[in-house]
């Protein structure tokens, strides 16, 4: 036995709960290769028919915003309330809008 144990790579798991819906992140699993990772994901996250679709992607391939940078990163959207429909004045009695 080798001095350091090897339990494979970390993979992120995304489940599509119903056909047509977006895939949502569920968590992560270990796997030694693609096939092993998706089977482990199935056995770990979809034992109760949680989904009809499954994706795995190696965790190291995920590009994420660092938590301490997120305020600054998303700042451009915070002062643009006119992107929301409620910003606009409409005449009384208008329908279908």
């Amino acid at each position: 036995m080798k001095a350091i144990d090897n339990q494979g790579e970390l993979w992120e798991v995304f489940i599509q709960s119903k056909p047509g819906q977006s895939f949502k992140h569920a968590g992560s699993v270990h796997g030694f290769d693609k096939d092993n990772a998706i089977e482990n994901a199935r056995d770990t996250y979809t034992r109760r028919n949680e989904g009809t679709g499954l994706w795995v992607v190696q965790s190291k391939e995920i590009i994420a915003v660092a938590l301490n940078e997120s305020d600054y990163f998303f700042e451009p959207a915070t002062d643009k309330i006119y992107r929301h429909p409620t910003f606009y004045n409409l005449p009384e009695g208008v329908t279908h809008m």
Binding site: Y88, L90, M97
Partner: peptide, 10 residues
């Protein structure tokens, strides 16, 4: 899209 239509109507 709903903001688009409203801004036009406004």
């Amino acid at each position: 899209e709903s903001f688009h239509q409203r801004q036009g109507y406004e």
